[in-house]
Amino acid sequence: MAFVPLLWIGLIGLVIWAVIRLTHSSSAGASGPGRGWGGIEHRETPEEILDRRYASGEIDTDTYTETRERLAAHRSGPR
């Protein structure tokens, strides 16, 4: 009879631990897209987005090359 309260305390503690563990891992986003080390968000640069879209076949070579040149011109600024 003395162990029943300990069993309930252990069970409640296990449930609380599981909830904290599940919510912490989903909010930290360590394995989610766009997240870097330590849950710090990494925003893709326009070049990275362009590279990803070209690699996945969303855009063709001509569009990729033209857009890459526009981005390079934009990065260098007005002359």
Rank of each mutant, 00 (worst) to 15 (best):
57 G>M: 12
5 P>A: 05
27 S>D: 04
34 G>N: 09
70 R>P: 04
36 G>L: 03
65 T>C: 00
48 E>P: 03
23 T>I: 11
11 L>R: 09
43 R>Y: 10
76 S>R: 14
77 G>C: 06
15 V>N: 07
14 L>A: 15
23 T>P: 02
15 V>W: 12
49 I>P: 03
46 P>M: 11
23 T>H: 08
20 I>Q: 03
55 A>Q: 10
57 G>W: 11
66 E>W: 11
22 L>D: 00
35 R>K: 06
44 E>G: 13
16 I>D: 01
10 G>I: 05
30 A>L: 12
65 T>N: 02
75 R>N: 09
35 R>Y: 09
19 V>N: 05
64 Y>T: 03
79 R>Y: 14
3 F>Q: 04
58 E>T: 08
53 R>Q: 05
38 G>S: 07
30 A>I: 04
67 T>N: 02
17 W>N: 13
39 G>E: 01
48 E>H: 07
23 T>V: 13
34 G>K: 11
79 R>V: 15
59 I>C: 05
24 H>E: 10
27 S>V: 09
75 R>P: 03
37 W>I: 05
28 A>H: 09
78 P>E: 15
16 I>W: 01
7 L>A: 00
79 R>Q: 15
55 A>V: 07
26 S>T: 13
62 D>G: 10
18 A>G: 09
22 L>G: 00
50 L>A: 00
31 S>T: 06
63 T>Q: 14
49 I>W: 05
63 T>F: 12
63 T>W: 10
70 R>S: 07
26 S>F: 11
76 S>G: 07
57 G>N: 14
21 R>Y: 06
41 E>W: 09
48 E>C: 07
14 L>Q: 10
34 G>T: 12
19 V>E: 07
43 R>F: 10
58 E>N: 04
64 Y>F: 10
66 E>P: 01
55 A>E: 12
21 R>M: 02
15 V>M: 11
73 A>Q: 12
61 T>F: 06
43 R>T: 13
